[in-house]
Amino acid sequence: MTSVNAQTTLQAPAQGRSTGFGWFAVLFLIAAQVTAIVISPPDRDMGDLQKIMYVHFPVALNTFTCFFVVLLFSVRFLWQRREQDDLLAASAAEVGTIMTGLTLALGMLWGRPAWGVWWVWDPRLTSTLVLFLIFAGYLALREFVEDPERRGVWSAAVGILGALNVPIVYMSVRWWRTLHQVQSSPSTVDPSYVIGIRLNLTAVLLLTIFLIWRRYEAALTERAAEHVLQTAALGGANA
């Protein structure tokens, strides 16, 4: 049986190492948003509505960053059984789930004025919703399992299968739609908006990295405390 090595105690991260980076990410995002809003003229078809895209698109795209991290570190956890990998995957899953929820909300705020309805069964929208539900399940699983090793292995399995399922869900929903109804027209990004979009993509990516990092630090500190207690209990028994 392979198991998480109980001897290696987790080291709590040094205090405040990510704070500077966090400030930078937040200020960069504000700057990127202001720049994008100021430099972009109102869209020909969509008017000011186009400006939602500067948050919606970067947030939506960066959910994939999160779930890619989940996939990567879940596989590595099953392979090498380092507890840090599990904590990192879980942090990315939490941030990713929140960002998926935000993506859905922003998509609705776009859809109501653009299409006249809050929701359409569009492949991208629908697969985003399914993705959200899959990773809500992932987070629930972690809540319901106490043993750290079991929690790590199980959530890694759920994370890997969930990430695998994303393209499959997208494909099946697209088939389902195209066979029966006309697909909703995708919002094309005008070349003049590319700078604003790219700037915001970078900003949201930085923020995503920061949030995952911070969540990971918190998880690591929490587990480090549990390790200390465990070692103290074991040491007491030996002495």
Partner: peptide, 25 residues
Amino acid sequence: PENIYFVTAAYVATWLVIIGYLLRL
């Protein structure tokens, strides 16, 4: 003209989520 409400709502929602999550962290 009412589009501006949706745009504002989108940015407000984004920042509420960011700040809320930062506080939770």
